[in-house]
């Protein structure tokens, strides 16, 4: 039972890491209806630019600021040179454009900052917390707890930003209805630039935590694939959905990895590891059969 809880908590905490990436998707989808496949590449770009700046001798805080500047510039450029030209195109064209964007970034970032895997030290150690290990015998990493804390702060501040600031209100208006927002004088293109900037910031945070955990390398782009089931489970348009979805996916995927392969092995023989790769997708798929718009997504009403 104790082992079960250990796996469960480990899964929940790693789920938070998925949520961080999923958040970036949600922000952009909410405000512009673009399914931004380049979010994983943005995580990679953010982490690389921090490491790159630090290699040039900048201290961590400066590197973070510089990376944030890079991400903001990237967001504005994307809006200006890609999305603005694709206004009124079908969503699939925009989706394809972001896949192209992902390729572009995956080529550009390592060219500028170097492609060899590097470690990123944030000053947080990835080791079990001793007091919990002694009292309950469970291994819970300090790093995971910090990540969870960061995610909580990020989500709270995003929620406050959306709810109470002028820009946040404008963002919600744009998300509700582009035309209506335009007609009351909200500058759509500024708003999109801001959203991409915010998504860049979220990618920076995700890049920091993932980079510190697994090293800054090309595999960071695959975090997007981890975030997709989270996204459809929680709903494309919901910030809390991304968090809850992340928790569910993280926990169930770790539990499945532990408990399903032995069963399969006793049935068929052979080695059935690596369930993590597809289990979240199948879980999300089955879930969608019951609720097609995800947990917190907006119900889609068709009008003829």
């Amino acid at each position: 039972m104790q082992f079960f809880f250990e796996v469960l908590i480990g899964g929940l905490l790693s789920g938070i890491m998925y949520s961080l990436v999923a958040l970036g998707f949600v922000l952009i989808y909410k405000a512009s209806g673009v399914f931004n496949f380049a979010q994983g590449a943005m995580v990679y770009l953010a982490a690389l630019s921090v490491v790159g700046c630090m290699e040039k001798g900048a201290p961590l805080w400066l590197a973070l600021i510089l990376a944030f500047a890079v991400m903001t510039l990237f967001g504005i450029a994307t809006e200006k040179f890609v999305l603005r030209k694709l206004v009124n195109q079908p969503p699939i064209a925009l989706f394809m454009a972001t896949i192209g964007l992902a390729f572009f970034v995956e080529g550009l970032a390592p060219m500028v900052f170097g492609s060899d895997p590097r470690a990123l030290d944030l000053g947080i150690v990835d080791e079990p917390i001793e007091s919990i290990l002694e009292s309950a015998g469970m291994v819970i990493s300090k790093f995971d707890l910090v990540a969870a804390g960061v995610a909580a702060v990020l989500v709270t501040s995003l929620a406050l930003f959306f709810q109470y600031t002028r820009i946040g209100r404008a963002l919600r208006a744009v998300a509700d209805d582009h035309q209506a927002a335009l007609s009351i004088g909200i500058p759509l293109q500024h708003i999109w630039a801001i959203v991409w900037g915010v998504a860049g910031f979220v990618a920076l945070v995700a890049g920091m935590l993932w980079g510190a955990r697994n090293g800054v390398q090309f595999a960071l782009t695959f975090t997007a694939l981890k975030a997709l089931p989270v996204l459809i489970l929680g709903g494309f348009t919901s910030v809390p959905g991304a968090i809850v979805g992340g928790l569910i996916i993280g926990a169930s995927e770790k539990l499945a990895e532990i408990y399903i392969p032995p069963v399969m092995q006793s049935l068929f023989g052979g080695n059935f590891g690596g369930i993590e790769g597809w289990f979240p997708y199948v879980l999300a798929l089955l879930f969608l059969l019951v609720r097609p718009e995800g947990l917190f997504g907006e119900r889609h009403i068709d009008r003829v």
Binding site: A97, G100, F103, F104, E106, G107, L108
Partner: peptide, 8 residues
């Protein structure tokens, strides 16, 4: 990079 740029 060129592949991505051409797609866009």
């Amino acid at each position: 990079l060129v592949f991505g740029a051409l797609i866009m």
